[in-house]
Amino acid sequence: MSYLKPLFKHPRLPKNKLGYTLKEYEGSLSTLCAGCGHDSISAAIVQACYEMAVEPHKVAKISGIGCSSKTPTYFLGNSHGFNSVHGRMPSVATGASMANKDMQYFGVSGDGDSASIGMGQFVHVIRRNLNMVYIVMNNGCYGLTKGQDSATADQGSKSKAGSINPFQAIDLASMAIELGASFVAQSFSGDKQQLVPLIKAAMQHKGFAFLNVISPCVTFNNNPGSTKSYDYVREHIEATSTLDFVPEMPEIKASYESGKSSRIALHDGSLIQLNKLATDWDPENRISAVNALQQARAKQEILTGLLYVNSEWKDLHGVLNTYHKPLNRLDESDLCPGEENLLSINAGYR
């Protein structure tokens, strides 16, 4: 249901470092079904951006098509948004990033949007290590077209109409690690405590940060027998770790502590403080991360939390060695070689 939000602001709402309240990071009221997991993810994004004190206009939200892709309307109302076409958010985000490297890009997609029609673009944006946060709101079905199985639906999962999915599921998180994503995490829309710090760390990561968030569709895929229902996910969830995100604290040296607790330094000196729960898992080792996922899958568990991070790899701007000023800020004097050069070019063609 859509209606106007009250404009009234409580004078004593807490403010962040920039002087903004949480309200300033909200969007218009959601038109998704009550209880839809996607709304909880939107709320987590709002919370993360508020806590990180990002300037709302320095964020751009880009999405494809689907219920999930509609959510950018419902968070960060002071940011530009682009609801593009089905499965093509990655290319639009790539172009946007090329134009202005100084902004934070949030890509929002669904499992249909990324794992089916948009698989090609999903794969390639990972390869290029585009500096963005890429969130898949994964409900194992096509919500907006009324509940058909998607390619992330588990084999054997039962739909609301009672049919059993006969096909293998695409595991987007393993795939992302495999393809060279430099930050991969998995979470659950119902676990805000885990989701918010993950989003914060993802935002701070310079490179491609992928969040596969299980996000139940209450209307079409929340029935008994579905492996993407609230109940099923709650029962089968297993976290790699609990974590906290610590913005830039240069005085703390990044180092592994003995035992279960460790810290991972991101490129700008901020830290991910991890309290490991999973054994034999090292988030800076690809093989170990993939192993942990495979083992969880074999046990029919959904492994959540940070899975893999690498802050060494160059992002696409680094690879292309683009100018330090955003390209959209360059003018004739930077870009146009002028008539004199053209005269010698002409001479070369005579």
């Binding site: 682009f82 093509r88 290319s91 134009a99 202005n100 090609g120 673009q121 794969v123 390639h124 959209n328």
Partner: peptide, 20 residues
């Protein structure tokens, strides 16, 4: 990766104020 992506990139960049 294909022409769809090529056009998507042009649109994303142009939307964001670059000539593409």
């Amino acid at each position: 990766e294909d022409e769809l992506a090529a056009m998507g990139m042009v649109i994303g960049a142009s939307w964001n104020g670059a000539r593409a």
